[in-house]
């Protein structure tokens, strides 16, 4: 039950993009086509899940014992996540070429995305254990994927519509994102 609550709250109530406003750049950048959005979502789910596991180990076994977790967290997390994703990229290219082809360029693109770092930092702030950290990371990434895919679907429809000229392009996209965020606000209160 506790885990279910964690998942639902990470996906819907505290959606990373629409409630916490993290990971906005890929949200606006790769939301023009469903196919690219799917690739991005896959890469985000993959990276965040693994990053949560690695940063938890780093925090617990290195930073806390040395008393560095107060001020060195951000720096070391970025460093480790960036290196880790590069490593995964190389390993995946060798051992899982189809997966590498599917995630492709999106994998290195999201190394230092704020959503990835956000999950890692939030995990530490909430004091989750290892399993809970990974689960939270996975669920948060699913929430990101959900928001991205909904938004992409909306944008594909808007592409065909005829908004007033001053709203065309980025403006109508931002308005749409705002309305979508408002809709997700409706979930607050679902989980206490």
């Amino acid at each position: 039950m506790e885990y279910l609550l964690l998942i639902i709250s990470a996906i819907l109530v505290n959606n990373f993009v629409l409630s916490r406003f993290l990971g906005i750049c890929p949200f606006l950048g790769v939301s023009k086509k469903i196919s690219t959005a799917l690739g991005m979502s896959g890469a985000v789910v993959f990276v965040i899940t693994i990053a949560s596991a690695v940063t938890w180990c780093l925090q617990t076994y290195l930073l806390v014992p040395l008393g560095l977790d107060k001020f060195l967290q951000t720096l070391s997390f970025i460093l480790v996540i960036a290196a880790l994703v590069q490593l995964i990229d190389i390993v995946m290219k060798r051992f899982a070429p189809p997966l590498h082809a599917a995630l492709g360029i999106f994998l290195p693109l999201i190394t230092t995305n704020c959503a990835v770092l956000g999950v890692a930092v939030l995990n530490m702030k909430e004091g989750y254990g290892f399993f809970k950290s990974v689960l939270f990371g996975f669920a948060a990434a699913l929430g990101f994927a959900l928001a991205l895919l909904i938004f992409t679907g909306l944008r594909e429809k808007i592409e065909r519509a005829a908004p007033p000229r001053c709203f065309k392009g980025v403006a109508i996209s931002l308005v749409t994102a705002g309305l979508l965020s408002l809709a997700f606000m409706g979930f607050s209160g679902l989980v206490k």
């Binding site: 780093l58 290195l62 930073l63 560095l68 001020f71 060195l72 720096l75 070391s76 460093l79 480790v80």
Partner: peptide
């Protein structure tokens, strides 16, 4: 901290 980050 220098050693730690450098080590990582």
């Amino acid at each position: 901290s220098t050693l730690c980050i450098g080590g990582i």
